[in-house]
């Protein structure tokens, strides 16, 4: 690939401040957020509700502006929304007055304005088939199930062939069964297209199944990307077999443990002199070795982060 120092997406010292609703001081939702994403990489972000994940995603999309810091994609600063970054919205955001085909075609036509009708239609149909919605293309969103709507959203985002895909809890509203089916489809499509993805999820297993790296955010205010796990589980991954991988449970335990306890403790460490300015990075191999230490360290109240600061 390219020079590892020149990442595809580079986020530097990002911060977002909101004026306090009570009229007091401003509220810093997150600050000193630093991370990089390489081309073709699938990155998941997780963290407690309200820590600022959606805000970060909206800044990456160009829909929101940061209070401080920069985002660079492909060497250029992100300053507004662009067709280079496809967004899959949590609420699917389909236009209810358009059919499935028209919804996808609207995006295709926006991307390639000089294409004629047939070309737009054929291209849109290809992606509708890809998400398994062939036959439903003339239906309105109100006639579709939640899972089908989300698939249309996926088809729409992929159809514009963006350089990067941003997903905000795309499957949050789906039942477990549908979620599994769509996750499998997403795995397949991403493998085929080598898509670069930034995805927010609350589902630990989903993150492990899909991602190459998992970013863990501490609680706000002043939230940070506290830890990053390199998810080295071999691909292709099977949902039914992945839990038999030796590294699966170490990763999973580490994540759950973070969400349950370390995400809060991190806040207390933030202002300490030795507070990490960049996230601690973990490999599954480290996790197996440190698993016993993690659990033994907890009751003492000594923050785990000191033990394994990378």
């Amino acid at each position: 690939m390219t020079d590892p120092n020149l990442s595809f997406l580079q986020v530097e010292n990002l911060a977002r401040v909101y004026p306090s609703p009570t009229g007091g001081g401003d509220v810093t939702v997150f600050d000193h957020v630093n991370f990089r994403i390489h081309k073709g990489e699938f990155v998941c972000v997780t963290g407690h509700s309200g820590c600022g994940k959606s805000t970060i995603l909206n800044i990456l999309a160009g829909l929101d502006t940061a209070s401080a810091g920069n985002v660079f994609m492909d060497g250029r600063e992100v300053s507004g929304p662009s067709l280079d970054r496809g967004v899959i919205f949590q609420g699917h955001a389909l236009m209810p007055w358009l059919t499935v085909l028209e919804n996808v075609s609207f995006a295709v036509k926006s991307r390639w304005m000089n294409w004629d009708k047939h070309k737009v239609r054929d291209h849109a149909m290809r992606y509708i088939e890809l998400v398994g919605l062939k036959g439903a293309e003339q239906k309105k969103p109100s006639q579709l199930s939640g899972g089908m709507k989300q698939r249309v959203g996926i088809a729409r985002a992929f159809s514009i062939e963006p350089k990067m895909l941003l997903m905000d809890e795309p499957f949050g509203a789906l039942d477990a069964l549908t979620r599994g089916v769509i996750q499998d489809e997403l795995l397949k499509i991403c493998a085929e297209t080598q898509q670069t993805v930034f995805m927010i999820t609350h589902d630990v297993d989903e993150a492990i199944l899909l991602s190459d790296r998992i970013m863990l955010m501490s609680n706000g205010p002043h939230a940070r990307i506290a830890e990053i796990i390199n998810n080295t589980l071999p691909r292709p991954r099977e949902r039914s077999a992945i839990h038999r991988e030796p590294h699966y449970y170490p990763i999973r335990n580490h994540m759950v443990d973070f969400l349950v306890s370390r995400s809060k403790q991190f806040g207390a460490l933030r202002d300490a002199a030795d507070a990490p300015s960049s996230p601690a990075v973990f490999d599954p191999v480290d996790l197996i070795e440190s698993e016993s230490t993690v659990f033994s360290a907890l009751p003492s109240g000594k923050p785990h982060i000191h033990l394994v600061n990378a």
């Binding site: 507004g80 929304p81 970054r85 919205f89 236009m95 926006s110």
Partner: peptide
């Protein structure tokens, strides 16, 4: 008009005229 739909048209870089007629008008119709 729902912010979601406007955000979709922003990420698709839809020009203002097309946005007015293809998104806002049908949404507000």
């Amino acid at each position: 008009v729902r912010k979601d739909w406007l955000d979709v048209s922003r990420t698709l870089e839809v020009n203002p005229l097309r946005k007015a007629f293809r998104v806002i008008l049908p949404a507000a119709a």
